[in-house]
Structure formats: C-alpha cells, structure tokens
C-alpha cells in the first residue's frame, strides 16, 4: 500500500548539487533535498521536476537506488520545461515531487537471465535497474545490456558502458544507427542485436526502454527470440501532469501510464501498442 502524502501536489525544494553535460542538449543533474534525505525509489520510477516559473516535467530517475543523498536525473532539452531544467546550474533550486510510478519488476528477474534493451535516452531509466542488478549480481543469471544510439557521439553514459563492458559477468553491446569512420563497434538498430545475444529465452526477463517505435521493434524481436510477452517489460511515455492518476492526461487505453506504469508488461499492452493515436 503506497503511503499517502500529505499533499501530493506540493513540490519539495531540492538544490542542484552537480550538473554534468552528457551529450549535446543533455545533462545529468544531481539534486539534494534542502532538508532530510531523498525518499527511496525503485528503478524505473520517475519524479516530477519543477523549473521555477516555467513548469513541471516527468523525468525518470537514473541514479543508484542505493544512494539516498541525491536524486540523479538525466534531462534532455526538448521543450520549455526540460530546457529550463537542463540549463540549471549548481546551487539553483528546483521543485521535486515523487518518486512515482511502477518500476522494473526486478524481483521477477531473480534466478533468471536479464536482457536490457535501451535506445537513446532510454538507458536513463534503465540505469538504476542495472545498478540494482550489479549490487546483487549473484542473484541473476546472464545479464545482457544492448544499447542503441543514433551515432557514436550520442551514446549516453559512454564511459560507464565501457566500464561495464570490461566486466566478465556482463555482456554489453552498443550499436549505432549511423557510424562515422572512427567507429569500430556495431552498426544497425538495437533490435538487431537481440538474436545475437546470449540468454535463455525460456527464463529471461527483458527490460526495454527507448522511443516507442524502437520498443515495438524490440518487442517483436524479443517475441521472435522466444521470450513470452509477460516477461517483456516496456517503459512508456505519455503526457504526465499530476503523476498520480488524477488528471487523465497520460491515459493509454485503460491504463494511466503514471500510476499503472511507466513500466508495463507487453502482455498487458500488446493489443493497443500498435493502435495509432490511442
């Protein structure tokens, strides 16, 4: 039973502790509460970040769930609010509501192989899941991380991916849609890596996040590889205003993406995933 907040609409003030440029137009902010510690969050959840006088946007949590000192958010400048957030410098205050939503069903992955499929910024909400898995690596079987990006210059968390790739207990593959001459890695879309990865389709939990089209392609490739729809989980994006299922904006068929998701099983959404304008 979730704990009812006194006023779920009221943001709490957080200070920008660190700001790190990730890619062109994309930064990672570390936010610390002006008072107390950050509430616990589950990998896959999101916060509503408020830029003073501009507005609020749903941004997934992308830091280590074991760390309670700060919230880590990777923000890409795509609109007025995300632009204002991405432009914040250390010392600035933001409003934070959250964490909200249902995250990745990591408990269901214990004892099984885990296949992480990320496209573009979709790696951000998956990173906490990867941290959580690595913290208890012995609980999982093979762990495969497939990452797709537009170009080598646009690979999110590139250095971290390099570090993970050095580990013998992880299979990390990164592919780009468009390669330059210096790129020696994979070229092609990330769903094409799925048949090449090493996992047991009978006992694998797949976690997918990226643009919706990419997730549809990935879902088809995962099904073709033999993973059941109930073991494939996607993180969806819809217009979120209230984050608690009261404003109606994020409806996706019968679901409220903010509270029934953002992570939902393919089994639940398969029928409407491809319906245009649903």
């Amino acid at each position: 039973m979730p704990v009812a907040l006194a006023d779920p609409f009221l943001p709490q003030p957080y200070r920008v502790e660190r700001r790190r440029r990730e890619l062109a137009g994309t930064v990672t902010l570390e936010l610390a509460p002006l008072a107390g510690a950050c509430p616990a969050f589950a990998p896959g959840q999101f916060n509503m970040l408020y830029a003073f006088g501009v507005g609020e946007a749903a941004i997934s949590l992308s830091g280590d769930p074991a760390s309670r000192a700060t919230f880590v958010h990777t923000v890409r400048h795509v609109g007025a609010v995300s632009g204002a957030l991405a432009g914040l410098e250390p010392g600035a205050t933001v409003g934070v509501r959250g964490p909200f939503g249902r995250g990745w069903p990591l408990a269901a992955a214990e004892g099984a192989d885990v296949l992480v499929v990320a496209g573009g910024l979709g790696l951000a909400p998956l990173r906490p899941a990867i941290y959580a898995i690595l913290a208890r690596r012995e609980r999982y079987g093979r762990v495969v991380i497939l990452v797709g990006s537009r170009s080598p210059a646009e690979i999110l968390y590139r250095r971290e991916l390099e570090r993970w790739r050095q580990r013998s207990d992880l299979e990390v593959r990164v592919t780009v849609d468009h390669a330059d001459a210096g790129w020696r890695g994979h070229v092609g879309v990330v769903p094409a890596l799925i048949p090449r990865a090493d996992f047991d389709p009978q006992d694998t939990l797949a976690l997918v996040c990226g643009p919706e089209v990419m997730m549809r392609f990935a879902a088809n490739a995962l099904l073709a590889a033999g993973i059941k729809a109930g073991r494939i989980h996607l993180s969806l994006e819809r217009n979120m205003k209230c984050a608690i299922g009261l404003c109606g904006h994020c409806q996706f068929g019968p679901s409220f993406v903010c509270k029934d998701g953002p992570v939902m099983s393919l089994e639940r959404i398969a029928e409407i995933l491809a319906v245009p304008e649903i």
């Binding site: 943001p11 200070r15 933001v94």
Partner: peptide
Amino acid sequence: LWRAQQGEGGLLF
C-alpha cells in the same frame, strides 16, 4: 494548488 517564493535559501513552496 500552491505558491512558490524565490528566497535566499532557495525555493519555498
């Protein structure tokens, strides 16, 4: 729903 003030210690909601 709420008001916010930009003060010396940061935002106050």
